[in-house]
Design a binder for these strands. Structure first.
Length: 916
RNA sequence: GGUCGCGUAGCUCAGCUGGUUAGAGCGCUGGUCUCACAUACCAGAGGUCCGGGGUUCGAGUCCCUGCGCGACCA
C-alpha cells in the first residue's frame, strides 16, 4: 500500500507538483479572522517582501533574500502563528523607464518621439505582458508567499495610498516645493535624491587657477577646484573670515578668467583655510555647498550647464558661455577650459587628486548638481519617532552594528527630494491654474477645473520618486489608507523585515518613518540585514560583470532545496555568501548531498516499515526503550533546543519591547541548519539508523520503528523551513496523511524529557565502537572481515553497559564482541582505553606488531601526561584556586580524576604488554 | 576625512557574556561499491587563532598599537 521511494530523489519531477499542492490547499494563505487581533486564537506573524522591480528576473541576490524570508515564515507557520508573507513588485520608475527607453533606442526613437501618453501606455503594456515573471520564479525556489495578496506599487489601490500620503504630508506642512541645487542625472534627465546619487572614489585632478584682483593686476587669488568647467558659473570667491592672508581683499573684486567679468571676494566660513590655498570659487547653481553660500550672501545663480550636461547659458548666465564652449559636453569643456587657462598662464598647478564623485545609481552617469524647482519632504519631524522606536527597544536591527548606521542617518537627516522628471511613475497630485495663478491645488482626486476661477488646470509634470510608494509598502499592501481594512487591523504592524543593507536608507528607514506618521507605530520590530552574494574573489555577483549564478540553473541542476540549503548554511548573521560561478558543482554539492542523504534515510525507513504504519512513540512502553533509543531521543531534544535558540524569540516578549537579553538573539539561520543537519546526518543516520538494523527483524522491531519514525519525523520538521520540498515529500511518505495534511503546517517540534542515564550510557557504546574501528584502520583489517573484541568496564556499571550492548557494539564495529578482562594475558592484541578507563582488546594473533602497539599506547599516555600536568599546575596555583569560579575549579578536579583513572589503566596495559 | 567591521585549517566560515584536548562543510591522504545512500561509509593529516605589547589565576575571546583587507557616510 505504501509506494516505495525512487532510488534517487528527482527534484525536477517532484518539486513543482509539490508546490502546486501547497498552493491548491491554501497552505500559504493567511486568514485575518484567525488572528488574535480579530478575536481569533493565532498570533499573526507578518513579513512583506522587498518588492523586486517589476521587470526583474530572479538573480542570486533575490535567491538569498527570499530564501531567508521563506525560512522564517515557514518556521513561524509551523510554530502555530497565522503567518503571512506578502509578495509583490515595484514599478521601479527610473529602472523601468530605462528599459523601455533602451527598447526605443533600438528602434531609433526616444521617448520624446512617442510623447508622454504613448510612452506610458507602452510601458504599462510591457509590464502587463512581461512583468512579474520574478514572482513565478519565486515559486520555483519554494517561496511560501500568500499569492492571494500579491501587490504592485503602481496598482490603483497602492496609487491611492500614494496620493493619500502625499496630501496628508502636504497638509501637515511636511511637503514643500523648493528651489535649490539637487543631484541631476544628465542621462536619465531627472533629479535624484541624496541616496540615489552614490559616491565612487575616483582619481581626478585638482586644478589651481589664478583669478587676478581687479585693479591690482600683479596680485591674484588662486582657487583650487576639481571641476574647472563650472567656473563659468562663478559669482564670487570666498575666503575664511579669520584668514589673515586675504583679509584685505574681502570686499574687493577679482576677474573671472575666460569669462572676463568681475566677481566679489567674500568672507564665509565655508572656505577651509587648510584646503589648497584657502580660497574657494563659488558656483551656486552647480554645487550644493556653493548654493548655500550664495543664499547667505544674496548672490546671483547663473546656470551654465544644461540638462544633458552640455555647456549652455541658462537663467542669469548671459554672456558667460562663449561661442567656442557652447554646446560642449561638460567633460570636453573641462579639457578646453584647462587648455585656455594654460595658454593664458592662469593655470597655476595641476595635481592628481583622489576624490569621491557622485554617480546615478541607475545608470552610473556622473551626477551634475543643478539648480531647479523640486518637491521635498521635510524629514526631521519624521525621523524623531523613528529614532525613538529604536531607542525604546520597539525596533531592533540585526546585526547590531547597523543600528549605529541607522541612528547616524536619522540624526543627520536631510530633506528628501521626491520629484522626478520622469514619465513612469505616480504623477504628483498637484494642479496649477494658469488663468488665475493661485495657489497650487493639492488633491486626492483628479482636478479638472480651478477651484478659484473654474479655469483650466494642468497637473504637475513630475512623478514621484519610486521610493515614495515603497516606503508605504507595509501599510499600503495591507489596505491603508482604509484604516478599517481587515488586513490592516489583523496584520499591521508586521514583524520582521528582511533585506540587504544597501537599502537601509532608501527603504527601511523611510518605512519606519511612514509607519509612524500614518499609523502611529513602527511597521516591524526587527530589521534583519543579510549579506551579499559574492564570487570567490569576493566581488559582488552581477549580471553585467558576468560573475552571476542563475538560481534557476541551480534549481534545474540540483533542485531548489540544494540551493536553499547552500545559501542558508553559508550565511552567518550579516556575513556575505561566497559562491563560485565557475563551479556550480563545488558550490552546491553540500546542499545536494544533504538532500540525497535525507532521501536515503527515508528510503531505509520505508523499506523497513512493512505495510502497517509505525506505532506512535507515545504508545510504546518506556521500559522497552533501549539505550540507543534513549540516546537518539535525547539528541533530538538537544537539537530542538539548539534550533529554537538559533531562531527565536520570534517577537519581543515584553510589551512590544525587546529586553536586553533577547535584543540581538535569534534569526541565526545557519545555526539552525547546522544543528538540524548534525542531528539528521551525524546522529540519526550515522548512529541510530545503523543501530536499528539488527532489531528490525526481531521482537522489539515495533519499538525501533516507532523511535525511528518519531526521530525522522521531527528531523523533517526542523529541516522543513530550509529544505521544504524534500521534507514534505518524505513526510507524506512515511505515514498516511489526510489530503489537507501538510508538513508545511505541521507543528514545530517540542522537547520531550530531560536526558536520562540510558542516553548517557550509550556514549560508552559509541566510544567502544570508535576504539575498535580505529584499531581496525590502524591494522588495515579488511572492512568486510570480522574481528574478535573483548570489552571490560572500568567499574561495575560500565561493565554492565558494555556487556549488555556487546552485540550492538559488534554490529557497529564489525566485530564479535564479548565481555572480557581487559588486563588479560597481554597476548597479541591491540588495546584501547576509553575515557572512563574502560578497555577494549582486539586479539590479532599474527598481525600485531608489538613495538607499534606499545608505541601507540605510550604516545597516548604521553598526551595524557601533558594534559594532566597542565591541570595539576593550574590546581597548584593558589591564585587560580582562590580566584577562579568554584565550578571551574571543581570541573578541573573532576577532569584530573578522569584522566588519572585512564592513565592508570593505560600504564597497566603498557606494563603487561610491553614490560614496563 | 569620519564611523564601523573583518583578519581562526588549503578554501568558506562557527567559536555567544574570557574557563575541557579551538569546531563544521568543502578540499586533501589511506581504506571500502558492507543488504538506505560511492551525491556514500570508515579512519586520518592539517591551526605560531595577522604581528607586537598589556589586563587577568587564565586571552582566539577584553584593552592599546602596527600591518593588511572591506563597508557605509561626508
Amino acid at each position: 500500500m505504501r509506494a516505495d521511494l525512487a532510488p534517487q530523489y528527482d527534484p525536477s519531477r517532484l518539486d513543482a507538483a509539490q508546490y502546486a499542492r501547497w498552493k491548491a490547499a491554501g497552505v500559504f494563505t493567511a486568514h485575518a479572522d484567525r488572528t488574535t487581533r480579530l478575536g481569533g486564537s493565532r498570533v499573526p506573524f507578518v513579513m512583506v517582501i522587498p518588492p523586486p522591480n517589476v521587470t526583474a528576473v530572479l538573480h542570486m541576490g533575490h535567491g538569498l533574500n527570499d530564501t531567508v524570508q521563506d525560512v522564517i515564515v515557514r518556521w513561524r507557520r509551523m510554530a502555530g502563528d497565522e503567518a503571512l508573507w506578502v509578495p509583490g513588485t515595484d514599478h521601479a520608475g527610473i529602472a523601468t523607464q530605462n528599459v523601455i527607453e533602451r527598447q526605443l533606442a533600438q528602434e531609433g526613437l526616444t521617448r520624446f518621439d512617442l510623447g508622454r501618453d504613448a510612452f506610458v501606455d507602452r510601458t504599462t503594456k510591457f509590464v502587463a505582458e512581461t512583468g512579474g515573471v520574478i514572482l513565478e520564479q519565486l515559486e520555483a525556489i519554494g517561496a511560501s508567499c500568500d499569492w492571494t495578496r500579491t501587490a504592485y506599487t503602481f496598482s490603483p489601490e497602492l496609487s491611492r495610498a500614494v496620493r493619500e500620503a502625499f496630501v496628508r504630508l502636504y497638509e501637515a506642512g511636511l511637503i514643500y516645493k523648493g528651489h535649490r541645487v539637487i543631484h541631476w542625472c544628465p542621462r536619465c534627465l531627472t533629479s535624484l535624491s541624496d541616496e540615489e546619487a552614490e559616491f565612487a572614489d575616483e582619481r581626478g585632478e585638482l586644478y589651481q587657477i589664478a583669478y587676478p584682483v581687479a585693479g591690482s593686476p600683479s596680485r591674484s587669488l588662486v582657487v583650487a577646484t576639481t571641476r574647472p568647467e563650472t567656473m563659468l558659473g562663478d559669482v564670487a570667491v570666498a575666503v575664511h573670515p579669520d584668514d589673515d592672508r586675504y583679509r584685505d581683499l574681502v570686499g574687493r573684486r577679482v576677474v573671472l578668467p575666460i569669462v572676463g567679468i568681475e566677481i566679489p571676494v567674500i568672507a564665509d566660513p565655508y572656505a577651509d583655510p587648510a584646503f589648497g590655498t584657502g580660497v574657494v570659487k563659488i558656483t551656486p547653481a552647480h554645487d550644493a555647498n556653493d548654493f548655500e553660500v550664495g543664499v547667505r550672501h544674496g548672490l546671483p545663480m547663473p546656470v551654465v550647464i544644461d540638462e544633458v550636461g552640455a555647456m549652455r547659458e541658462g537663467p542669469d548666465a548671459h554672456g558667460r558661455v562663449s561661442e567656442s564652449l557652447r554646446g560642449l559636453d561638460r567633460f570636453d569643456a573641462r579639457a578646453r577650459i584647462v587648455a585656455l587657462l594654460r595658454a593664458s598662464g592662469q593655470l597655476v598647478n595641476v595635481e592628481p587628486h583622489q576624490h569621491a564623485v557622485r554617480h546615478c545609481y541607475r545608470c552610473d552617469t556622473v551626477v551634475e548638481p543643478r539648480l531647479s524647482d523640486q518637491w521635498f519632504v521635510r524629514m526631521a519631524p519624521l525621523a524623531k519617532p523613528a529614532l525613538e522606536a529604536l531607542r525604546a527597544g520597539r525596533l531592533r536591527v540585526l546585526p547590531e552594528r547597523w543600528e549605529a548606521v541607522y541612528v547616524n542617518w536619522m540624526e543627520n537627516i536631510r530633506d528628501w527630494n521626491i520629484s522626478r522628471q520622469l514619465w513612469w511613475g505616480h504623477r504628483i497630485p498637484v494642479w496649477y491654474c494658469d488663468a488665475c495663478g493661485g495657489e497650487p491645488i493639492v488633491s486626492r482626486d483628479e482636478v479638472t477645473a480651478c477651484v478659484q476661477c473654474g479655469g483650466a488646470v494642468r497637473q504637475d509634470d513630475d512623478v514621484l520618486d519610486t521610493w515614495f510608494s515603497s516606503w508605504l509598502w507595509p501599510l499600503s499592501t495591507l489596505g491603508w489608507p482604509d484604516e478599517n481594512a481587515r488586513d490592516l487591523t489583523a496584520f499591521y504592524p508586521t514583524d520582521v523585515l528582511v533585506t540587504a543593507p544597501e537599502i537601509l536608507f532608501f527603504w527601511v528607514a523611510r518605512m519606519v518613518m511612514a509607519g509612524h506618521f500614518f499609523m502611529g507605530r513602527e511597521p516591524f520590530h526587527t530589521v534583519y540585514l543579510h549579506g551579499t552574494v559574492r564570487d570567490m574573489r569576493h566581488v559582488k555577483m552581477s549580471k553585467s560583470l558576468g560573475n552571476g549564478i542563475d538560481p534557476l540553473d541551480v534549481v534545474r541542476l540540483y533542485g531548489a532545496d540544494a540551493l536553499r540549503y547552500t545559501v542558508i548554511a553559508g550565511l552567518g548573521l550579516g556575513t556575505d555568501v561566497m559562491l563560485d560561478p565557475t563551479n556550480l558543482e563545488q558550490s552546491f554539492a553540500p546542499g545536494r548531498n544533504f538532500v540525497t542523504k535525507l532521501w536515503n534515510i527515508g528510503r531505509f525507513i520505508l523499506q523497513n516499515l512493512g505495510d502497517a504504519p509505525a506505532p506512535a512513540l507515545a504508545d510504546i512502553d518506556p521500559a522497552r526503550l533501549t539505550r540507543a533509543d534513549a540516546w537518539i531521543l535525547a539528541r533530538l531534544d538537544a537539537a530542538i533546543a539548539e534550533c529554537d535558540s538559533a531562531l527565536g524569540p520570534a517577537r519581543p516578549t515584553h510589551d512590544g519591547r525587546w529586553t536586553s537579553g533577547e535584543l540581538y538573539a535569534g534569526l541565526r539561520l545557519s545555526e539552525l541548519v547546522e544543528s538540524a543537519r548534525r542531528f539528521a546526518w551525524s546522529e540519526l543516520a550515522d548512529w541510530y539508523v545503523e543501530s536499528t538494523k539488527p532489531r528490525l527483524g526481531g521482537p522489539d522491531a515495533d519499538v525501533a520503528r516507532a523511535v525511528l519514525v518519531h526521530a525522522f519525523d521531527a528531523a523533517l520538521r526542523l529541516l522543513h523551513p530550509v529544505v521544504p520540498f524534500i521534507t514534505e515529500t518524505l513526510w507524506q511518505a512515511i505515514a498516511p496523511r489526510a489530503a489537507d495534511e501538510f508538513l508545511a503546517r505541521a507543528a514545530w517540534p517540542k522537547r520531550r524529557a530531560p536526558e536520562g542515564d540510558a542516553a548517557r550510557e550509550f556514549e560508552l557504546v559509541r566510544e567502544a565502537v570508535g576504539a575498535i574501528r580505529q584499531i581496525r584502520a590502524e591494522y588495515n583489517i579488511a572492512p568486510g572481515a570480522r574481528v574478535a573484541a573483548l570489552v571490560g568496564g572500568a567499574e561495575q556499571r560500565a561493565g554492565r553497559v558494555l556487556a549488555d550492548e556487546a552485540p550492538l557494539i559488534g554490529h557497529l564495529a564489525r566485530a564479535d564482541v564479548s565481555p572480557g578482562d581487559g588486563t588479560g594475558d597481554g597476548g597479541a592484541a591491540a588495546h584501547a582505553v576509553l575515557s572512563d578507563g574502560s578497555h577494549v582488546r582486539v586479539p590479532l594473533a599474527g598481525t600485531i606488531d608489538l613495538g607499534k602497539e606499545c608505541g601507540r599506547l605510550r604516545g597516548e599516555l604521553e598526551q595524557l601526561a601533558t594534559l594532566r600536568a597542565g591541570i595539576e599546575q593550574r590546581l597548584r596555583n593558589e591564585r587560580f584556586v582562590t580566584r577562579a569560579k568554584p565550578e571551574v575549579v571543581a570541573g578541573e578536579r573532576r577532569r584530573l580524576e578522569e584522566l588519572t583513572t585512564r592513565a592508570a589503566q593505560l600504564t597497566a596495559k603498557v606494563q603487561t604488554l610491553c614490560g614496563g
